[in-house]
């Protein structure tokens, strides 16, 4: 599986490298500017990798989250674009492999799978949405489950949740984002 290199002119490497170096030093403004600037570039990379329009934003968000969690590994003496592209490649290849595996074992439902004439009869599980939600939360990894419970179910602020869990606000944000994405996969909209 290969992901083609995007055109070099699409990546103003020096600016991005300087922004990333500033972000590593804690400059939130530079970080926001960097993430905003690389997002269209990453959409292009994701599109070229073969992601469908409905998957591109998910793929880009995956890359941004990974970049955030490994930002200490970037060396400002080296060019930024190859580092970013390598991170993007890893995440997109993971995503394409996962998609391949899911497609291999899933079969789309057809009308023949319906057992009753009325829609309501086929969707009786809607009555137990809350139970399904709690079951789905229960299967999340511990860190993600805690993030959902504290930030969504108990509606604590990031600061409060951080004090309760001992995790940094940044780690909680990443965990919550991953948890919500996972839940949206576990609980597809009917």
């Amino acid at each position: 599986m290969s992901i083609k290199d995007p055109p070099a002119k699409a990546a103003p490497d020096k600016d991005w490298s300087a922004l990333m170096a500033a972000a590593q030093d804690g400059d939130a403004k530079a970080y926001g500017a960097l993430l905003g600037a690389i997002t269209p570039y990453l959409r292009g990379v994701a599109r070229r990798a073969g992601l469908g329009p409905e998957e591109i934003e998910d793929g880009v968000q995956d890359i941004l989250l990974t970049l955030h969690s490994i930002r200490q590994s970037y060396d400002p003496k080296r060019p930024f674009a190859p580092w970013l592209l390598a991170v993007a490649r890893h995440r997109l290849i993971d995503r394409l492999r996962r998609r391949g595996r899911i497609r291999l074992r899933e079969t789309a439902l057809t009308e023949a799978h319906e057992t009753f004439v009325t829609d309501e009869s086929n969707h009786h599980e809607e009555a137990s949405d809350v139970r399904r939600l709690h079951e789905a939360i229960a299967v999340l990894p511990a860190g993600q489950r805690q993030a959902v419970e504290l930030l969504r179910l108990q509606e604590l602020s990031l600061k409060e949740a951080s004090a309760v869990s001992g995790q940094s606000p940044s780690a909680l944000k990443v965990a919550l984002h991953r948890a919500l994405k996972r839940l949206s996969r576990l609980l597809p909209r009917s």
Partner: peptide
Amino acid sequence: STEDLIASLSTGLTPVRRL
């Protein structure tokens, strides 16, 4: 949205020790 995610990641950003 991706914009929300970017805002969330950059809010309260802390410095990291480079490898």
